[in-house]
Nucleic acid binder design. Sequence first.
DNA 1: TTAAAAATCAAACGATCGTTTGAAATAGTT
DNA 2: AACTATTTCAAACGATCGTTTGATTTTTAA
Lengths: 214, 214
Amino acid sequence: MEYNAKQLQIIEVAERLFSQKGFAGTSVRDIAQEADVNVSMISYYFGSKEKLIEALFQLRMTESSTRLETLVMTSELSALQKFNVFIDSVIDRLMGNQCFHNIMLREQLSSERTPIITEYIRGLKLRNLELIKRMIHEGQEAGEFRKDINVSLMTTTLYGTVNYAIASKDFYKKLNELDHLNDEEFQQHLRGELSHHLKNLFKSTITNEHHIQN
Amino acid sequence: MEYNAKQLQIIEVAERLFSQKGFAGTSVRDIAQEADVNVSMISYYFGSKEKLIEALFQLRMTESSTRLETLVMTSELSALQKFNVFIDSVIDRLMGNQCFHNIMLREQLSSERTPIITEYIRGLKLRNLELIKRMIHEGQEAGEFRKDINVSLMTTTLYGTVNYAIASKDFYKKLNELDHLNDEEFQQHLRGELSHHLKNLFKSTITNEHHIQN
DNA sequence: TTAAAAATCAAACGATCGTTTGAAATAGTT
DNA sequence: AACTATTTCAAACGATCGTTTGATTTTTAA
């Protein structure tokens, strides 16, 4: 399925508003007004408000990252280096698509999701988990990683930390007195902090390396 | 402010429905029907739907845990032991009040919150962060903890992991083939796994201990 | 027992919801 | 140019939203 400019405009406005106000909290008239189209165009193009959010998911989900998969699976990096690349890619993906990932997180909290969206999310999570499992296994085979790693919970920590950091970013910004930074600068700052924090956190836990007391 | 039985009934039903379907996705008629009261009782008792969710926040927020604070600050436990107690208390608090914490997480994702709710959340986060900071500082003074700990992000990882684990628990349950467990058993299982996972994760990162290769 | 206060209810209020309609405007094709 | 197909629009549809009303019942207090 491919969309024309007007359809994409509607989808992008809907993405932002769903993220800010939730699906139920956003009216089709809100979307139509901000997208500068007539209200009836939403039903005309997508069938319904429900189908609109499904179209959004279908669009964002199929923006696949095979690039990352092949990099992670075929390159000459060490297992830990690959894992660190993956951490950065998760940070970039979530922070670069905050609106969509806000919506996705909200949908996970809800018990009222469409089967279609549930399946989209489930498929994405399965693919991510499989990729991580292969990375961990590779590191274990090479003797780099410990044998007793709970991959499920490690993944939960990775996505949970980034998601919660984004959800709490305003709090974090005021707390650390970063008001002097503009949005772009602050986002970059947060990415760097998260990257450093998560790499440190996991390195201590998954590798067999000795700690050197500092 | 104290509430009679009927008011508490309304608040509790509202808490469950807001958690399942979101604030905007829940109608006052939904709440009235499930709480077995007339629709007008909600306005009659609380003034409005908006005031109802504020009453919910006020009620849940004032269920304070000074018990934990005094335990953590005055007991004879080591810094790491205190921190582990705190980890368990976070897991218990979030898993024992999943409905309310779902609502709170959703409110954090939203850009449409009431100033009152925003302030409730901000105050809670500040108090939690201060408690953690004191614990970490105590451990650093005693030489138990490293000096270069990012308390903000550590807290983000703690709450982010537990929140995301709860949001993903259905996925986690199917993935690990735990369908044979009933709800109560599964919750206990998840608590234990989270506890072990988080304690391990942080111990490696915050303490000065040497790792022994296993 | 009686009067005041509180609680409950069905019904209705105006507003807004998602969606449809049918005509008008525009674009595309021959 | 003429015809078809697509897009756009104001208006209206019935449904549901949060809230209010005003009468009625129940509880409380004197």
